[in-house]
Nucleic acid binder design. Structure first.
Lengths: 174, 174
DNA sequence: GGAGAGTACATCGGACACGAGGTATCGCAT
DNA sequence: ATGCGATACCTCGTGTCCGATGTACTCTCC
């Protein structure tokens, strides 16, 4: 997820690590803050994999900046990761939001629609949280107000996203 | 999050690892499946910390079962984790749902309301995903349909949860 | 002139997660 | 008979994440 965000932000423009961190923090930081000790090793990994290149520039105020640029392999890798997200990326809301944030970089409406359809299929799967034996329990059947709330909120979320997904897929297809 | 789920399920009744895994899978597995190689070490950790005890029973069909029971320390630890969740547990939806699933075990309406209020405060913070310099961008200002969708869905989710939170806090207080 | 905040990068150790693989039993279908 | 799926547990290696800590420069405020 972090790597996807790095590739995604760099696809638009070269950035240095510190600026990258600010953008990632704006995108997902309120939920899961990005530690510097996670970001810099991730940058190094991607660099060693040949997905991005760095050029050192004198820092405007402090230490010299390492400006990061995606290589051609890096651009291809981002498109590949967007076109074929892992199951994790589809099911985990945090990861899915990251995919969505950069899906426009997949400049192919059919490919974009295919990704949205995978999310749609996932949300359409009958998923419950609590079971009585094999039978899945509905919100109304629960005594516990917190579990009821959990189901209620999850259902509302899902409804909102489903209708957005259906609209968007239709307009991508049309 | 995993440890919280283990403590939460065992608070109700002693279970063996395999059954525990099925319950956790039902709760959060559609989003983030729990690998056995994650669960068993986690059980061992909790056992070594003195939070749970195991007794071996002949297996009904296969290998002998290790039935896990919460110790008094374990019960206290669960209540402590529920009463004072880490910031992570409040902000990350997956973790938050786990907290909610077991919040009833905190049998103190004021404590429960306090936890809900923390989530409420978090959701009320003005959080944006995308910025133009310092200015946060609203859904309407974005060209990108996917980022628009992301904001739209996030807003709908948040609205649904906010209204549930306010109702529930009111009824816990009243 | 000195403290503190912000910019900018980096390393290290510990904790945690996961896939791959292993052990063993039972029932059912082929 | 033999393989498969379910039950039930476990280890190992690899990778990732994070908090703590360090370096070094600039600007602002007092």
């Amino acid at each position: 997820m972090l790597e996807l965000a790095i590739l995604g932000f760099l696809y638009d423009a070269p950035l240095h690590g510190y600026e990258l961190r600010k953008r990632i923090t704006a995108l997902t930081g309120h939920v899961r803050p990005v530690a510097e000790s996670t970001l810099y090793p991730a940058i190094k990994r991607l660099e060693q994999a040949g997905l991005l290149a760095r050029t050192t520039q004198p820092g405007s105020v402090a230490a010299p900046r390492h400006v990061l640029t995606l290589t051609e392999e890096g651009r291809g890798e981002l498109r590949r990761r967007l076109a074929e997200p892992a199951r994790h990326d589809i099911t985990d809301e945090n990861r899915w939001f990251t995919v969505l944030a950069f899906l426009r970089h997949l400049d192919d409406a059919a490919g974009q629609a295919a990704v949205l359809r995978r999310r749609l299929a996932f949300l359409e799967e009958p998923a419950s949280f609590f079971y009585d034996g094999d039978r899945s329990l509905r919100a109304e059947e629960l005594d516990d107000p917190f579990r009821r709330g959990l189901l209620t909120v999850a259902r509302a979320t899902s409804r909102a996203e489903l209708s957005w997904l259906r609209d968007t897929i239709r307009s991508l297809d049309g």
